[in-house]
């Protein structure tokens, strides 16, 4: 079990993501590149001890079923090319290590923002000559989770550059803007109220490091965009489509904000 999983909630309630953000900037500007701000606590640290234990044990984590399924798909030829993922990428343990920790990312050729799901579908259409998987379908969840699993414990490392800045700014604006009939911003819950009880849930910092995650309420594995749709629904706001530009931009903002948090896919969540 990683250190992050054992972090406790106490003393964290006043942690402000924005403050952490500016700290990083300040330190970098001052010189020493080694010192960074403290990463945000993972959602795992808000789970009960027994759920944390269940998550970190491969034998009891229900999300591991999708990892096995993804490993199978990785090696299975598909599409007109007759190629499998492994044909091009070989052993995922080597070729995919750290990849998930660097997504979402702008695709150079088109300038499009891609998360892992979209990147997988791009390989399917352009390399395998296969149909793209439907968002939230089992094979896409399985492959996404399998690839993310190769980054287990790796710190999220997504940078803003000229190509991604506009997407990042859009995501950031969405995060801080009040929305929905209940007029709440993401930041109100996931910064100001993190650690507090919202009915039976303890609000976390809204870090996407565990996705696709097995959510007990869903009784299945689900993507980050499915979770974001729940948050939008909770404040009676418009739910954007899976893979929509809105949620992709938010995903990028969340990843930059979660710099240094270790990947924990497949996490267990309430």
């Amino acid at each position: 079990m990683s250190v992050a999983m054992k972090q406790t909630v106490s003393g964290r309630a006043s942690h402000s993501a924005l403050a952490a953000f500016f700290c990083v900037a300040a330190v970098v500007a001052a010189g020493p590149a080694s010192a960074g701000g403290e990463p945000l606590p993972s959602g795992t640290s808000f789970l009960t001890q027994s759920l944390q234990a269940q998550q970190s044990d491969e034998a009891t984590n229900p999300g591991m079923l999708w990892i096995s399924e993804g490993a199978l798909i990785w090696q299975t030829p598909d599409g007109a090319s007759g190629a499998s993922c492994a044909t091009c990428h070989g052993d995922a343990g080597t070729s995919m290590k750290g990849v998930a920790a660097s997504y979402p990312k702008v695709y150079g050729k088109t300038g499009e923002l891609l998360n892992l799901e979209k990147r997988i579908n791009l390989c399917r259409t352009s390399q395998q000559n296969a149909e793209p998987y439907a968002y939230e379908s089992d094979p896409l969840l399985a492959l996404t989770a399998f690839i993310a699993r190769q980054s287990l414990g790796q710190p999220i490392n997504v940078q803003i550059d000229d190509a991604s800045r506009a997407f990042y700014e859009r995501g950031k604006a969405m995060f801080y803007r009040r929305q929905g009939q209940l007029n709440l911003s993401c930041a109100q819950c996931h910064e100001a109220l993190a650690g507090k009880q919202l009915r039976g849930d303890t609000i976390s910092y809204g870090v996407g490091n565990g996705y696709p995650a097995y959510r007990l309420e869903w009784q299945t594995l689900g993507s980050l965009h499915r979770r974001l749709r729940s948050c939008s629904y909770g404040v009676r706001a418009r739910r954007f489509e899976f893979g929509s530009p809105e949620y992709l931009s938010l995903e990028l903002f969340l990843a930059v904000r979660a710099q240094g948090v270790p990947v924990e896919t497949p996490a267990i969540r309430r």
């Binding site: 009040r178 929905g180 209940l182």
Partner: peptide
Amino acid sequence: AMPPYYRTKGLADVAPEYEGRPA
């Protein structure tokens, strides 16, 4: 953080089923 329960103006991206109606 308390939602406005009798207000319809100045709200962004309200879900269609709640649009134009107070909570």
